[in-house]
Simulated scan of single mutants.
Amino acid sequence: MIGKSRHLNTRQDAPGSLLDRGAFGQGCGVLHHSPSPGTYQHRRHAPPDELAGWVEHFWLEKWNLRGCSPQTRVVLPHPNVHLVFAPGRSKIYGVQLRRFARELKDQDSILGIKFRAGAFYPFFGKPISTIANSSVLAEHVFPDAVSAEQRVLTCNDDHAMVEAAANFLIAHLPARDPNVGVACSIVEAIANDGAITRVEHLVARLGLPERKLQRLFHRYIGASPRWVIKRYRVYDVLTQLTAGEPVAGATLAQNMGYFDQAHLYNDFRKMIGCSPGEYLDSK
C-alpha cells in the first residue's frame, strides 16, 4: 500500500494533523511495512506560518512491539532533508538516493522535521550533496540539539512535541536566501508536472543554463536534476499501479519519457528492486 502504513492500529484523527494518505507522491514513500502484532502510528502535522517556507511537515512515529517480532519498514524517500529527534541519537539525514530500510522493535517514539526540498542549505551552510546517503549528528548543525531532544521527546502529547520542535527551529532560522524559493519551486514543478521527464524540459521552462541548474541542485537539493525527475516519475508509476489503472508497459514508458519499456523497467528495478508487474503482484 503506497504512501500509507499498513498497521495503524491506534491511529486517531487529530485537529491540525496530516495523516498518511494513499497517494504515493503525497505520502512518505512507503514501499513495504511488514505485518506484525503490536501497534504503530505515523502522523504528520503542518508547520506553523513562521516555518511554512522552510518545512514541508512534522512527522511522528510511535510503536509498541514489545513481545512481538520486529517490523521492517522500507521507503523510497523524497529528495528532502530530515531532522529527526530520537532518544540519544538525534540526527540530520541527507537525501537518500536509494531505498531506505529500517527495523522497528521494542517500544519507542521519534519526531522528524521534513524540510522542503531545497530549504535546508541555509541551516547547513554546505552543499546538501555532501550528506547524500548519510547523516550527521544534529548537534553538528544545531549546538543545542541535545537539550532540544529532551524537551521534544518528554512532552506529553503529539501537539506539544510538534510545538517544542517548531519553537526550537524558529529560534534557529537563518537569513533568507532567495535561491531557496527557486530550488523549492523547481522541485515542486517536477513533482506536480508529469510532463517533465528530461532535464532539457527544465532548462527550456526555466531559461537557466544546464550547468547552473546542476550547481543549484548540488548545493540546495542534494541530488542531480536527472535523479529528481526520475524519482518523481517512478512515484507516478507507483501511484498508477496501486490505483489499479490498467496501463500497458510501452504506453507507461512513453508517458514517463523513457525511450522504451526496457529502460523504464531497468530504472524501476534499480529503485524498487523488482519490475512493475512483480511489485504489483506483491501488494
Rank of each mutant, 00 (worst) to 15 (best):
A46D: 10
I110N: 12
A204K: 11
V187M: 01
G118Y: 05
W63F: 15
R89K: 08
P87H: 10
E200A: 11
L264H: 03
G257Q: 03
Y40F: 15
F58C: 02
W59Y: 15
S129F: 05
I190V: 08
G67C: 05
G277A: 06
F268S: 07
K212I: 06
K126I: 09
R6L: 12
H263E: 12
W63P: 08
L83W: 04
E188K: 11
F120R: 12
A119G: 10
Q254C: 10
A132H: 00
P37M: 14
E200T: 08
R99N: 00
V247P: 11
G38P: 10
P87R: 13
S109T: 07
F24A: 11
L252C: 08
G29F: 08
P276D: 02
N266I: 00
V141N: 02
G88D: 05
I2Q: 05
V146R: 15
D281F: 04
L208M: 09
L216R: 02
L65D: 14
F58H: 02
S5D: 07
I170F: 15
V84P: 01
A86F: 01
L169Y: 05
H57K: 12
A175H: 14
E278M: 00
C184I: 10
M161A: 07
S69V: 15
H33M: 14
D177F: 07
P246K: 14
L83G: 03
E50D: 15
H45S: 14
E278W: 00
S36W: 10
M161G: 01
S282G: 05
G207H: 02
E163W: 07
S224T: 13
V228E: 02
D49S: 14
P70H: 06
R176W: 13
H82E: 09
D144G: 10
R11Y: 05
T242L: 13
K270S: 14
V152M: 01
M1G: 11
V136C: 00
L18W: 12
T197C: 05
R116M: 10
K114L: 06
P122C: 09
Q41K: 13
A195Y: 04
C184D: 01
N133P: 01
E103Y: 05
